[in-house]
Nucleic acid binder design. Structure first.
Lengths: 374, 374
DNA sequence: TTCTTCGCTGCAAACCTTTGCAGCACGAGC
DNA sequence: GCTCGTGCTGCAAAGGTTTGCAGCGAAGAA
């Protein structure tokens, strides 16, 4: 039923190759012929069949985006940014959700491999060696994880965690808990490493709680543990857990920030809407999505050798750039001076705008510039 | 580089058609041959090329999911459910975001048409006639909108709005505002219609505010207007707007629910996390996603005529089922008795669990069953 | 022995497009 | 008049798979 290139050719009285060229190499066809063909195509509602084109060009003009959990509000802005950037370059995005399951991840990469030109692996739960393995099947850009030899986009959560701990130290906290994220998360390891170092050099004690699922429930479930441990401040793996924790603490009768200070990571939209508003480490998620698409497509736009002969590999051309995007601590209302210290907030007035304090609206500014590490 | 069916055939010493049959019609090939072929395939890491298969079968095993705004937390659960259901049936989902733009929607349907077997149009902003038009190009199931002659999945927001208004009437409110959603939204019209009727029959006055963008910002921007209008309760188009409104009212010094009661629609996860927790009309989003996929694929699993000859159309086989899913009012903390009435909450104690009151965790129960309307 | 039947396998067309190559007409230069 | 170049178009192969049809060998029936 849908018009093919042949229908257009018949209607305009030319060969199909001329129709093809009308679209893919217009300068090669006589202007008069061109307008005639275009008119017929328009008339028949012809649209080239991308699948058939992919068969011969080897380019599908699709990219796969594999996500641990779409329902986690951290991801949608990233997806949206990636999708926009891809569309800009005439690419479509296939989004797949793995439910935080490593096996599902692998399965999906395989299933997608043949119908996409590359895959964005977002916060993968797979092992590094498995990632390397699948990357031999299809070009891959990894987001939120560092894998040697593969193009990666990561956020500098280490720096963020350090800032968060220093912020808490400055408020007088010396007993701090780290609410860990899921096992296998690179981000989790980074945060733990940096927070541990910062706490140590500040003379504070850091209690590790977890691993936990990176959800509100995961955070809430640790409320009692936090309570029992006697810490006065908590750095959570992400905002969702921080919010769940605040909720859980509330039910135990502990108030935030009066009794316990809580810091999250990510700066999801939600963190501005809860009460108290969440102090958190803002990560440039949208920029990460855009950057990853660019890296994938840059590597991808090199012409692919064609024909039956074996491709000549001109050395390993993989430009394994690794980009690290900067993070920024955003101080809101979920952190305060250590209880019983008589201190006030560093900004002066208990609720006044402090030095780092940020107005409500507006996304992370100045976080789009990346540091190229390698 | 990736192994093709030909490589497997060569390795196992059979014709490619036998390899093909090994996968698509195993009962037609000798068990011995089968195991040999499977072993070779496994060995070479062969995966059938879905694009090539699509070319001949006319089935891509992909479905498109067109969403107004991924970043709106209403959608991710729907996407996730649709994706899971699709994967169950060996389908993949391409998600596309239109930024609430009707033109982008149309463009995307066209772009996707050839590489998917059908499209899920989710809360479309296009006109009905345009939807009908694109539905001639590719099978379509519409979600959150009623379009005559097309398969649709809608939520009974009318019933939900009625319950919400009745709940407010029961609390003594007689001056109520309706915070409208975006122009072109079917849901918006339904809510307006049902809320208007319910208010009228309850002797209350309903003030319409809007249209507004369906976001926190959109809700917050109307706070002043709400304040000035002197209403004591507000029903918002969705939770996001309700939350934004509460935020805005708070900044104007009005407290919820003491000064103003607010009801949302959707019951997004977020509505349990804000303070006060939101009273809202729960919509079965996940069920909607699953149902829509089922409707699309049921209609799709009918064998497609093949060969050069023109297809014989056996009457219009489009089973244009229209499913309406039930909604449920969830009473939480953002609604209370009209100010100065001396009333208490209907449950008895000001904060005790009322009859409809629901415990925190757990999704909407009993909302998966649908009412088939036609 | 001859004829069927049956189970399995091979053959080749078809799906829709891209692209290197060849062919054609025409004008210019010699 | 012949050659050459140029601008445009047609031809046909290729890409990976599915599938109707035919063929083949063996077993069973007559």
């Amino acid at each position: 039923m849908p018009a093919t290139i042949r229908d257009v050719a018949r209607a305009s009285g030319v060969h199909i190759s001329t129709v093809s060229r009308t679209f893919s190499a217009p300068h090669l066809v006589n202007p008069e012929t061109r307008v005639r063909v275009l008119a017929c195509a328009e008339d028949l509602g012809y649209r080239p069949n991308r699948a058939a084109r992919a068969l011969i060009t080897g380019r599908t003009h699709n990219i796969g985006l594999i996500i641990a959990d779409i329902a986690n509000p951290f991801f949608p802005p990233l997806i949206k940014a990636a999708e926009g950037q891809a569309r800009h370059r005439d690419y479509h995005v296939f989004v797949a959700d793995t439910n935080e399951d490593a096996a599902a991840e692998e399965e999906l990469v395989h299933a997608l491999a043949k119908q996409v030109d590359g895959v964005l692996l977002c916060s993968p739960r797979m092992s590094n060696s498995l990632i390397e393995q699948v990357s031999r099947e299809v070009p891959v850009v990894v987001i939120n994880r560092h894998v040697a030899g593969l193009p990666c986009v990561v956020m500098d959560v280490g720096q963020g965690a350090r800032s968060a701990i220093e912020h808490l130290l400055g408020l007088g906290h010396r007993r701090i808990a780290l609410l860990c994220g899921p096992r296998g998360s690179w981000t989790n390891r980074e945060i733990r490493r940096a927070a541990g170092a910062a706490a140590r050099s500040g003379g504070a004690e850091l209690t590790l709680l977890g691993p936990n699922p990176p959800t509100e429930t995961g955070g809430g479930a640790q409320a009692e543990q936090v309570c029992r441990s006697g810490v006065t401040a908590v750095l959570a793996y992400n905002d969702l857990m921080a919010i769940g924790l605040i909720e859980g603490l509330d039910q135990l009768g502990l108030r935030v920030p009066e009794d316990v200070s809580v810091v999250g990571v990510d700066d999801i939209a939600l963190s501005r809407l809860t009460r108290p508003k969440l102090t958190t480490v803002a990560t440039p998620t949208a920029a990460a999505g855009r950057t990853a698409v660019d890296m994938l497509l840059q590597h991808d736009s090199e012409p692919r050798p064609r024909g039956g002969g074996r491709a000549v590999v001109v050395g390993d051309r993989r430009t394994t750039a690794q980009v690290m995007l900067q993070t920024e601590l955003v101080i809101r209302d979920s952190t305060g001076p250590v209880p019983g210290s008589g201190r006030t907030r560093p900004g002066g007035l208990p609720d006044g705008p402090g030095p780092h304090r940020r107005a409500d609206p507006g996304g992370p500014a100045g976080t789009t510039g990346g540091v190229v590490a390698s």
